[in-house]
Every structure is written in C-alpha cells, then in structure tokens.
C-alpha cells in the first residue's frame, strides 16, 4: 500500500515536473505582460466611449495604407527571411569548419548585429544620400564620373521596388549574424561521426549537408527561422529612419504612426489597437503555418 502510494505520488510528481519548470514563465507573463495586452485587445473591440464595436477593424481594413502595408510587409518578409537564412546558414557552416582564425572571423561577422540604431541610422543615411559615402566610394573607384550621382533612396520619381530592395539588403546585413549564431550553436552539438560516415559512404558536401546535417539541425533551423519570421513581419525602424512615416508603409509602422506621429486624432487609439490585433493575428497565423509545415509540432509528439 505504502509503496504503491509513494510510487503513484512519484509518478504524479514526474508528470508535474515539466509544468513546474514552465510555471515561472507563466507567472512572469501574468504579472508584466497579460494586463496591457488584454487592455489593447479590449481597446480594439470598443469605441472611444467604451462600447463594443467592430468599427475599428472596418477602419483598419478600409485604411488606404492597409493593403499597401500588407503587401510591402509580405514582400519584405518573403525575400529577407530567404536571403537571411541562406546567408546565415552559409556563414554558420563556414565558421563551423573551425579553421585557424575562425574565432576572430566569427567576431568580425557579428559586428553588424552589435551596432545600435543610432550608428546604423547615421551609417546608412550618410551612405545613401546623393553626396554620401557610397557615391564617394564609387567615384573613387571610377564607377561614377565626376558630377554623376546615384539617388539611392529615390529621386523625384518614387520607385517603391528599389526602396524595398534596399530595405531588404540593409535588413539582411544587420540580421544575418543574429540568425547565424543560433544555427552555429546548433551545429556545435552534431556528432561528427555521422557526418564522417556520410563522407565515407561516398557523399559529397551537398549530399551530406542535405541528408545528414540539415535533418539533425532541424530544431535549430526551426527556431532560427520562426524567430526571424516573427521579427521580419514586425520590421519598421530602419524604414522610418531612412524614409520617414508613410512613404513605404508597413504593418507595424502603422501602429507606431498612430502611437507617436499622430497620437492626438480622435481615432488614433482605436486605429493603433486595431492594427495591433491585426498584426498579431497575421504573425501568429504565419508562425503556425510555418511550424506545421516544417513539422515542428509533429516531430516532438513522437520524440
């Protein structure tokens, strides 16, 4: 009797362990995060006098900037996450070869990630302006003739495609290192034996990568991509730094716009709340789809 009871207790205890380990997080979020979020959710479903309404979402969806913002965000996410993943994986595999000097090489590649916004802002603004360092460099290299200039951020004729491409490149430049360190951390623990076996059985670099390294790296890749996906959808700062509000609208930029640029409008709070809910819905749906497709959930169940 006593023995079985203690056994079942221990079993219960064993089942409770994961929940206990997660409990601190839940408490933490409950104290600092849940209340403001609920306030925003309520705010998005009420009008200025606190009455339930769906009008806020009607306003968001009929906002002339909503669809361009959604479109721009989608383009940025699609290209930047792809480019960043390939770049980050390439660098991580390279550094993981542990050649002489790879530690210093790693440090150098991490520099863009460590720069604060004030430095990156100054860097790109002084670079991309007509009399900036990029044009200066091209002039010294002989690419630009005297008096010839490239208007990187657009001349008189607005060219959204070019601007989006620039934003994607600049974003990738800064973000690749942060994605790379996750992948690199994951690569550390892959048993060398498996990889070596792959080569022994006649695999070349690509087949070993595809058949052995990538599958073993899967949890890390999922983490790196999902984290990047989430923040890529919420990109805004670099765009506002370079172009101000409204020229290339993106989703989170709209929230900031109503919070900080025009906070006084009668509809500012409602618009910001509405956009916030719409954005978080879009982000979570995208994340969910990615996790399902990449098999993050399925795999664990059987693990």
């Amino acid at each position: 009797m006593v023995a079985t009871r203690s056994k079942s207790l221990r079993k219960m205890w064993g089942q409770a362990t994961p929940y206990l380990l997660i409990l601190p997080v839940v408490i933490y979020y409950a104290i600092f995060w849940v209340r403001p979020v609920i306030a925003v959710i309520i705010g998005s479903f009420t009008d200025a006098s606190g009455v339930f309404t769906l009008q806020n979402f009607v306003m968001v969806f009929s906002d002339e900037n909503f669809w361009p913002a959604l479109n721009n965000t989608a383009i940025i996410v699609l290209f930047s996450v792809t480019i960043e993943f390939i770049g980050a994986l390439f660098l991580a595999l390279l550094i993981n070869r542990k050649f002489f000097g790879s530690g210093i090489f790693l440090f150098l590649t991490l520099i863009p990630m460590a720069l604060p916004a004030v430095a990156t802002g100054a860097m790109w603004i002084t670079g991309l302006t007509a009399h900036g360092w990029i044009n200066s460099l091209l002039y010294y290299l002989g690419v630009l003739a005297e008096g010839e200039k490239i208007y990187w951020l657009g001349g008189i004729e607005p060219n959204p495609t070019k601007l989006l491409a620039l934003v994607i490149i600049i974003d990738a430049w800064q973000v690749i290192p942060s994605m790379m360190i996750i992948l690199l951390a994951g690569l550390q623990n892959l048993p060398k034996a498996a990889k070596e076996a792959g080569y022994v059985f006649g695999g070349n670099f690509m087949t070993v990568l595809r058949k052995i390294t990538m599958p073993m790296l899967r949890p890390t890749i999922q983490t790196a991509v999902i984290l990047r996906l989430i923040s890529a959808i919420q990109i805004w700062l670099i765009i506002v730094l370079l172009l101000g509000f409204g020229r290339i609208p993106v989703l989170v930029e709209r929230i900031v716009y109503y919070h900080e640029e025009v906070p006084g409008l009668n509809i500012s709070y409602q618009m910001a709340a509405g956009y916030t809910i719409v954005v978080s819905t879009i982000v979570s749906l995208t994340a969910l789809v990615y996790l399902r497709v990449s098999g993050a959930f399925k795999k664990e169940e059987t693990a």
Binding site: I22, V25, Y29, F32, W33, R35, P36, V37, A39, V40, I226, L227, I230, S231, Q234, V252, I255, V256, H259, A272, A273, T276, V279, S280, V283, S284, A287, L288, L291
Partner: peptide, 19 residues
Amino acid sequence: RFSVLFVRMFPGVAIALPM
C-alpha cells in the same frame, strides 16, 4: 510552446507605455 512565443508576436510598441 506556441504561447510563450506569442509574446514576441504581439507588437511591443503597443504595450510599452502600459508596461
């Protein structure tokens, strides 16, 4: 696991001041 990630999905700018 998905919920703990939701914290990052909810735009931080919207709740910075209330926090």
